[in-house]
Design a protein around this nucleic acid. Structure first.
Lengths: 217, 217
DNA sequence: GGGTAATTTGAGCGATCACTCAAACGTGAT
DNA sequence: ATCACGTTTGAGTGATCGCTCAAATTACCC
């Protein structure tokens, strides 16, 4: 019979994720973690095997939650393209000082991990590719629904969508003004919605955005 | 009369930049720098005042060279939009193992710097904004040349262009296959060229890209 | 209440961190 | 040659790094 652990694993992972996300892997010390988790080094190493393993656990959790949030936003039925566009707009609505006004932890880790820290690098890349697969599946569904042209390339669209999202979150991280961030997100979102092909002569004609003066960048 | 320093400041900065760019600020130790620069700690601290100051010197140099490379590519006369598009394509042509197949050092630093490392964060942001100003100036020139519609928004276009470039370099950093990277770059480049407005009824009609099946993402 | 096993504790491990400084050294002027 | 001066040297600074482990503590079963 195991004794119930007096520490709350979920809260500990929350605190560790917040710390790692904000400061990155290298700049976060065990002292920081001890303070944030309210645990002594021995407990941390009993619960999680090492600093690296703890980081990877946080990253996995973060990625899983990101994926679930995406699916929740895309799975409400209705237009896939509209949902994808709204997902971009969502990321511009974060309050500037908030925890979400930060670049994606997966991307941060990809850029921070050195080649010899292979587990961090491989983990981050795997999660990045998994998100890409989510986006590709969404575009495939859009194509199946007739929102996209039959010869549309979901893989390329997914790459471009992820690029837009990545850059948008870098812009938020930079501290861009809320209105500039919203304008950029809106511009990228309209780009997605402009992919829609007219399904019939009547119903979705309004969804076809008019050719604007600056449609791209 | 000062004695000429026996160390080559330019080569030292080259080596330090390579190291910082690859490993980031925190993961680069003084031991690493000693080995790469061929200098003992005392010399490093005499030549550059601290690890942080050395990093900032490298970052300044990197940003200045990036700016100069951009100006060289955009200043050859001819179409600004074509030059901007080609600049994107250039970044996809880097050989995969090469030193350039890495995310932008400015962006890496923006994402790595913690809020309390204010000099690193501020320096990276300043350089990022300076690059944005370069892009905005290029789009303004394009508008003045009649390549863009008179009501085009250079600031927004610059933000979108920088977003595309940032994401493209993240994709290269990730280790994307050369053909996928080229496809993404080509897609983004065409997006830029599609901004062109027909200048006259005849001459530049061919430059107006035909409306493709998947123009955006 | 006593026994047992799982868990937490926290001092402290060796290694490495960024950095310093007195001494050795090289160079140009005399 | 000799001197004066500025640079390079590299052993060594205290602090902090990630991490360990024997001992104390706690919860559960009988």
């Amino acid at each position: 019979m195991r004794r119930a652990p007096p520490y709350d694993r979920d809260k500990a992972l929350d605190a560790a994720t917040e710390l790692f996300w904000r400061k990155g892997y290298h700049a976060t010390s065990l002292k920081d973690l001890e303070a944030a988790l309210g645990m002594k080094p021995g407990s941390i190493y009993a619960a999680f095997k090492s600093k690296e393993a703890l980081f990877l656990a946080c990253l996995d959790r973060y990625a899983r939650r990101s994926r679930e949030a995406l699916r929740a936003q895309l799975g409400r039925g209705g237009s896939m393209l509209a949902a994808l566009a709204d997902h971009l707009r969502t990321h511009a609505r974060q309050n500037p000082g908030g925890a979400e006004a930060r670049a994606c932890m997966i991307v941060k880790t990809m850029l921070e991990a050195t080649p010899d820290e292979s587990r961090l690098a491989a983990g981050a890349r795997a999660h990045f590719e998994q998100m890409r697969a989510e986006f590709a599946a969404a575009f495939e569904r859009a194509r199946a629904m007739g929102e996209l042209a039959p010869d549309a390339d979901p893989a390329l669209l997914a790459a471009r969508y992820q690029a837009a999202l990545t850059a948008l979150r870098v812009e938020a991280h930079r501290g861009a003004a809320a209105d500039e961030l919203a304008a950029l997100a809106e511009s990228l979102a309209q780009e997605v919605e402009r992919l829609r092909v007219a399904p019939g002569p009547a119903r979705a004609a309004a969804a076809e955005a008019p050719r604007a003066a600056q449609p791209a960048g």
